[in-house]
Design a binder for these strands. Structure first.
Lengths: 219, 219
DNA sequence: TAGATTGTTAATCGATTAACAATC
DNA sequence: TAGATTGTTAATCGATTAACAATC
């Protein structure tokens, strides 16, 4: 188990750890060297109690009256989250979203590299996307094996999502990022994380509706 | 308050309601007319108890020995989530991701329409993205007001995110979808939902690491 | 030193699950 | 009818918050 990680961290805590890491990085860019649980809490809309409780899952200790040393905390959080590793990824689905992911430079800046993009549509196969060429699905299993690809990003329409996920799993992928609306069932050793923009938008429209005054008027 | 909604539904439940709706739609496409709490639970990796408990937040009743009538359930869930309304959106940030959202046809299929895309980079302003032309940030507040835009999608780099969010809020936007890593603080009447692909990837890499055997070997 | 901030325990709060009477 | 499935109550489980001694 990587350094800095203590047994199992609850998913709710892991989500917040990503926010802590982002905030610490941002503060470091501003030249700040220490952060406190109160500062983190206020910025992220939490209680300082939650922040301290969360950080107790991680092998790093703050200092009374000073807080947490930023660089040390960032490094430990990066270790726990795996942000210090060079993960290898493939994107399946060369639609607008899949292409955008390949062209997005945030990944490479963070050490995550997309090694291949695949599509079943013969019209898309061979097309250039940044430095990559869209490959046919036939070659996916061999590609994943030979390049020791860790992560598969599922960026295909809902109907095709589970078929694609099954193929990636059979190819020996270690984890899936699911961008499709379909729920993906995978074996226990292959974690799946959903990042579904349509679902997020529905959460948002639900929340907006709740704020509509009872009168039903506009705004 | 829209029909079918009972007072306040916890966020954890709302998230699952989006999944239930997606599953019911998929089953309807297959010609199925009834779904049960057991079927929903098994497909989505939940207990049937959770499904029934969740659906009790919604103004729709199942039938003993048959389950839930698919079309009725879909319609009520759509009402609760706001999926039956024509939401008006703008995208701020005409990078790869922002452009992909405009070109993505899933939104229009779901009645969500992107009315404008904005960028502060003069080199991007004027560029065509699908049927839209990238606009300068100057025009954002007037555009939001005149077009009665409901939702702002924040698709800019972390540094710019909060400035953009503040501008959208000042323009009278009703809700924000945040795709940037920055945490956005908004007034209570402006809900913010995060959909951050980098954060999701970090949750995934954390989960993958946990599955590494203690020996530290590959796979 | 005085007092701000930590780490941790215990209490509270909320979410999930189990159980089962009601029902079609 | 018999029995499968609902809606709901109560029990369990987990996550958040409050409180405070320890400490730098």
């Amino acid at each position: 188990m990587p350094y800095g990680m203590k047994s199992k961290i609850p998913p709710s805590v892991v989500k917040r750890l990503t926010k802590y890491m982002a905030h610490v990085q941002q503060r470091q860019n501003e030249g700040v060297e220490w952060v406190s649980s109160v500062e983190l809490a206020e910025t992220l809309g939490l209680t300082s109690s939650t922040v301290r409780q969360d950080l107790s899952h991680v092998d790093f200790f703050g200092v009374s009256r000073r807080g947490y040393e930023a660089e040390g905390l960032r490094r430990v959080l990066a270790g726990v989250l795996g942000a210090d590793k060079a993960w290898r990824m493939v994107v399946v689905g060369a639609g607008h979203l899949g292409q955008a992911l390949v062209l997005h430079d945030e990944f490479s800046r963070r050490g995550m590299k997309i090694y291949g993009i695949f599509d079943k549509d013969p019209k898309k196969v061979g097309m250039k996307v940044g430095k990559l060429v869209v490959r046919s699905m036939d070659g996916l299993p061999a590609f994943v094996g030979q390049n020791e690809v860790d992560i598969g990003i599922v960026a295909v329409p809902a109907e095709a999502a589970h078929r694609v996920a099954d193929l990636l799993i059979a190819s020996g992928i270690r984890g899936l990022l699911n961008l499709s609306l379909t729920h993906i069932v995978a074996p226990r050793h292959v974690p799946v994380v959903d990042s579904r923009i349509i679902a997020s938008l529905l959460q948002l429209t639900h929340a907006i509706q709740q704020h509509v005054p009872a009168s039903g008027g506009k705004r």
